[in-house]
C-alpha cells in the first residue's frame, strides 16, 4: 500500500457520510406536508377526536422517522452501527419510562383519590 501525500488534508475520502442536497429537500418538503396536514386537520376539526388523535400520532411518528433519516442521517453509517444500536436502545427505554409512568400514575390516580378511598373503606366495613 503506497503512501501518497494527501494534498488537501482536510478532505478525507474516508468520510462516513457524503451529504447531498436531495435528502435535505425531501426531508424538508415531506415534513412541511406532514406538519400542515396535522395542523389543518386539527384546526378545522376534520374528523372525530379519536381519529384526529390517531392521525396526529401517526403524522408525528412519520415526521420523526423522516427527520431522523434525512436530517440526522441515521442508518447511513458504516459498520459497526453503534449510533443505530444506541438509538434503538434509547427508544426502547423511552417507551418503557413514558408509557410505564403513564400506566402507573393513572392506576394510582384512579385508586388513590379521596372519594375512591372512602368508597373502598365503606365496602370493607372500615379498617
Amino acid at each position: 500500500m503506497s503512501q501518497s501525500i494527501n494534498k488537501s488534508p482536510v478532505i478525507s475520502k474516508h468520510e462516513d457520510e457524503r451529504l447531498s442536497l436531495k435528502p435535505y429537500v425531501y426531508g424538508y418538503i415531506i415534513s412541511l406536508v406532514l406538519t400542515a396536514t396535522a395542523y389543518l386537520s386539527v384546526r378545522h376539526h376534520a374528523a372525530s377526536t379519536t381519529v384526529l388523535v390517531g392521525l396526529v400520532v401517526i403524522l408525528a411518528l412519520t415526521q420523526f422517522i423522516v427527520q431522523v433519516f434525512y436530517f440526522l442521517h441515521l442508518g447511513k453509517e458504516t459498520k459497526p452501527r453503534w449510533k443505530l444500536y444506541i438509538f434503538f436502545l434509547m427508544v426502547s427505554i423511552v417507551l418503557i419510562i413514558v408509557f410505564g409512568s403513564i400506566w402507573i400514575i393513572n392506576n394510582l390516580n384512579s385508586r388513590m383519590t379521596i372519594p375512591q378511598q372512602i368508597q373502598y373503606l365503606n365496602s370493607q366495613d372500615g379498617l
Binding site: 418503557i96 419510562i97 410505564g100
Partner: peptide
C-alpha cells in the same frame, strides 16, 4: 428498567 415500581408497591397501585 422494568422493575422500579417494586420500591413503592404500597403506594396504592392495583
Amino acid at each position: 428498567f422494568t422493575v422500579w415500581l417494586h420500591h413503592f408497591f404500597t403506594m396504592g397501585a392495583g
